[in-house]
Amino acid sequence: MFEAKLTESTTIKRVLDAIKDLIQQANFDCSADGLSLQAMDTPHVCLTTMTLRSQAFEVYRCDRPLSMGINLSSISKILKCAASKDSVKIVADDEGADCAEFIFENESADRIAHFELKLMDIDSEHLSIPEDSDYQAIISMPSAEYRRIFSDLSIIGDTITIEINKNTACFSVEGDIGNGSLNLAQTDSADEKNPVTINVKEPVKMTFPGKYLNTFTKAVPISEFVTLCLTDGNPLAIEFSLPDEAGFVRYFLAPKIDQ
């Protein structure tokens, strides 16, 4: 038996919004620890991982691990039927269930909606992601700043270079119409309302596809802050963490490299 109830549908709606433009379908792996998925996009440029830990849920029961193959567009359609303040309960049989039940209940518990989502058999392979905490450079910024930087630059072109030196990050773009750049300095005071922090072991300069950096802005409502971790020649890791360590959405983006 798998049963998980979120107090408000907003949490899962936001998480799905952050991943559904990158992956069409994925296995939602349920375990005693929580709900998680990982999937690559078709061109194998971006890997998306998501975790909703058991403490994110008001009720969480997973007697034994199960994997629910879900079409992201379909689950999003069903969740559109939940108001943001409605609670969401997901129920599935852990013995080869062919559908999952979604129950939406309003705050006054006098309106209850039931939906069944057909599950799919998805043949996906799990990738082993190096737990590399030894990044050359880590920058944390308000997620609204992230949105502004990459929605602006990706309009100019798709080749975006991130260069991080001591206390400064430079984001630059080259496009057909011209180019542009933006420098962001570490904020001086720890009391600053919207701090930017930059930790550099070694300066790093890498280039990434702007289209993806812009798509990741869909995760901005999840989190007030975003962390970008860079190591020369390796995928960029971007993390949006849910409040109260309830979970996260992480993206790994392959760099553009010299031919």
Binding site: P43, A254, P255, D258
Partner: peptide, 14 residues
């Protein structure tokens, strides 16, 4: 010019 790499060279299947 730079070329887009893929993740297949970085992450191995479990």
């Amino acid at each position: 010019p730079k070329q887009q790499s893929t993740l297949l060279s970085f992450f191995s299947p479990k």
